[in-house]
Design a protein around this nucleic acid. Structure first.
Lengths: 192, 192, 192, 192
DNA sequence: TATGAATGAGAATTCATTCAT
DNA sequence: TATGAATGAATTCTCATTCAT
């Protein structure tokens, strides 16, 4: 009767919630299986091991993020407008999925080389979205010619990450999206 | 006669190295004791448990950072110059202690409430250094009147964190301090 | 098809044997798991920790003892006969389970306040069996009017404990139940 | 200036207090050294290891008990009077040294064969005091001819142990020596 | 596929004992 | 003798993973 959500998705969602709230190392397989309402063993029918769950979260969610973000700026011409849309989209995704925000921001910074290798490609695409816009802005003369593109990207992601982090840890009392315009303006000026 | 480094410092330094490279959860007590060249049990003569090691690193290092950073800008009047000095100091500390950088940046974001409570005060002082400069800049008219101070702080730390993170993960091939002036300029413009 | 003894019982029995022979502190979890022929971890599927094993032994065994002892004297009217039956039952249980005897008698006296709190209720019921008989005897005039009931109970349990202890430590060469009648007579006279 | 108590005695007394209150296994060498106000290492100048402390307590205290108990009944002729004196002496010693009472009663029941071997001789002398009185009573016709001497000794020690145990665990609210006469009478009748 | 009991390697921590001072 | 920092073997408990049902 019910349209059944595939077990894979149920588990993945449960994992995001649990890992987002407890962190990867404190999240037990049992916590995830409880949250997903399946048996421990069932998880191993869909994921090869615990790390694979984390990698899969990155893979699927970053891919999804990149696709949706690209769609958002599809057809937009104005660089600053693209910037604003991306900022808004980023903060929207994160504010709607604080657990996912936690997973992406914290676990992505694991010093484990191994883990980073495994998501490098998806991370690259994730970075590309904003790098393309920055590049575009430079070409169009909206941003200064000698803008250091990596520095700009680091400022963009670093700032947004920090804003989201503060918001997540502060208990999410205020609206994460209240500052879209101000941030847009700050980036615009910084890049000029 | 022997120049003896106190065991406490030896262990703390070993812990910074190991935790910085492997992350808190992957760093085993045995790894730290091996690195420090002491027995496992010796660690427990100086720290009450594993978490205490991490908290102590934060406490001592943030305290030290704040003190030294304050000294650096002591007597400087020009806001932009203070900003430049802080950026340089930050990148200098981090580039000289990449392991410490990892510990501070990554482990500080552990979602463990307990942990965050324990470093909150030191973190507050850490934030205060830059917030004071920003405030000062606003008063002096160097930065715009309605600059959102938290947003500015988040941009400052977020950006520097991301720059350091990228540098750490990339294998530290390039000079972390090459971009002090460019970053200073970007912040100056963003805050205006 | 297989006559399967539940793991819980297997572990409990193994624990009684090992703890009875070595004492609680000298009995290692590995000893118990070896004796039970299960993995260490399996024990923790049935008991929350080592102390819980000990408390559970007390709970189950004292409960069982009290129930069976009550049944034994069910319907008996003569006080001295009830006394004799209880003594015989006590010595029978202990002689058939010397390890259990050890656990109950020795470990029950651990000075750990915590432990004593946890078995207090069961211990109370255990004491009640004989106290009821003594009370009954007083009312019926079989024992003297001013018999100090706690003193009588202490003599009863103290004596039986010591008899069993000596028997256990001596290597159980002689028959523990050889002296049922003599003990009955001694108590009867002492209580008069 | 102060007449110095030998360190050996200080440590032994501290050990009795700590072991009596916490039990042998929960009593740490550090607890004992703290209580004795000496360094850990100092203890090993007087005792070869932790077990040796316990054995020494038994040896010295049981020896002392036996000597004093013998003195108490020296020259007394009446068997029942000797019995009363011994009971009074036992309860007096225990009520004045509840920690010692704990050590003797609880730790003596360790199922460790090893430990019991090491105090067997002293325990034998301890038992002999009352056994001699019982024997004497039989010869004199004060106790019945066919009294089973071991059973009588077990009743004597078992009862007194239980009385003391109850008193120790109950928090020592009441007077341990209130029941000397009643106990004497009960034993006298039981042995007849 | 789904289950969850069983597994056992692995980790943090304790503490009796040693020994250089 | 006295000290107490250092040691490291030993122990309890955890939890990712397996596999018979």
């Amino acid at each position: 009767m019910e349209d059944k959500i595939p077990k894979f998705d149920v588990i993945l969602q449960a994992a995001i919630k649990v890992i987002g709230q407890k962190g990867y190392h404190n999240a037990k397989i049992k916590d995830i299986s409880n949250e997903a309402d399946v048996a421990d063993g069932t998880i191993y029918n869909y994921f090869s091991n615990k790390e694979d769950i984390l990698v899969t979260i990155f893979r699927i969610k970053l891919e999804d993020y990149v696709n949706k973000a690209q769609q958002e700026i599809e057809g937009i011409d104005d660089t600053v407008e693209k910037l604003r849309i991306l900022i808004r989209y980023h903060l929207k995704v994160m504010s709607e999925n604080p657990d996912l925000a936690n997973v992406l921001q914290i676990e992505l910074r694991q010093p484990s080389k191994d883990m980073r290798m495994k998501v490098r490609r998806h991370l690259k695409n994730y970075f590309n979205v904003i790098e393309n816009v920055i590049n575009d802005g430079i070409k169009k003369g909206v941003f200064k010619k000698d803008l250091h593109i990596y520095l700009a990207r680091e400022m963009y992601f670093g700032t947004l990450d920090e804003v989201v982090s503060t918001w997540v840890f502060s208990g999410q009392h205020w609206g994460l999206m209240d500052h879209v315009d101000e941030l847009t303006e700050m980036f615009f000026k910084a890049f000029n």
